[in-house]
Design a protein around this nucleic acid. Structure first.
Lengths: 142, 142
DNA sequence: GCATTATATTTGATATATCAATTATATTTG
DNA sequence: CAAATATAATTGATATATCAAATATAATGC
């Protein structure tokens, strides 16, 4: 049997764990109380403006149930507001509050910084090649 | 701002999700009731024989608390046995049961199969290069 | 227009991750 | 040896993931 820790997927899992911890630590250290997943949801809404929760889920490759709960927390933190959609009452109109905008603006430099640190020693080209290969694997898993 | 979904780490997160789902589906489809993480713990113990729970945690890059709970489930499923260590009574002697051995033997071909499918179109060399780059990133995050 | 079907979201159950606090036992050290 | 410290594992709290069931509303088809 191939050793479990020599398998590519093990390396990838390891990377994600180390990176998430690294990322969250920097955010906390700078005094912000937001998780990586909450950050992603905020950024996704910021880029796309009008999205239903299920669309957010789809874009972030998350379950709609997870999105419900993450959004609940973001609303509790007052970074997000939810109004029932006037046209389709099953949906919600999600909007980032001014507090939410502030958090994004303040946290973004931190994110840029740790991303840069994490990628030190890799060229744009290296990164692109990895992405291409990983996308291949993603397609194989469908 | 860089689009959130063009960032390497987003691709990696996406890959892990798609791959985990893909993997777990094949295992379930073949009638086995074991999660990816439980599988990893079993394989880790199989390869290393004598490990404490905290050593398992370290090798799998997991928290000791997670390991406690995963092992609980493996014991409940009778794939693992736990006896108090005769020398150091804080520890446990973990051993894979014969049911556990059977599961590993039966699930392993399934794992090989989906790994192979997932990696279709990539050469050994491609895979190695990715690993090397990812290890670089892992080190940057420490 | 009403029944059927589809879609959006929520909720509950279970698994895992992370952090902090707790418990039990070992080790160190004064 | 007793007190202080270190280590192993557990437990509780909270966040997230996944699946299934439930609820509410919309769309469709006869």
């Amino acid at each position: 049997m191939e050793k479990f820790d020599s398998v590519l997927f093990f390396t990838i899992e390891k990377l994600i764990k180390v990176y998430r911890k690294f990322a969250h630590e920097q955010i906390k250290k700078n005094g912000y109380d937001i998780t990586i997943d909450q950050w992603l949801v905020l950024r996704c809404l910021q880029e796309n403006k009008i999205l239903s929760q299920s669309q957010v889920a789809e874009m972030l490759f998350k379950d709609v149930a997870s999105i419900t709960r993450i959004i609940e927390l973001l609303v509790k933190k007052k970074y997000l507001e939810r109004k029932i959609d006037s046209i389709d009452r099953r949906k919600f109109e999600l909007s980032i509050t001014s507090d939410g905008v502030k958090v994004i603006e303040n946290v973004y430099p931190i994110v840029q910084n740790y991303r840069k640190k994490a990628l030190e020693g890799l060229t744009k080209n290296d990164i692109n090649n990895i992405k291409i290969d990983l996308e291949k694997i993603i397609n194989n898993c469908k």
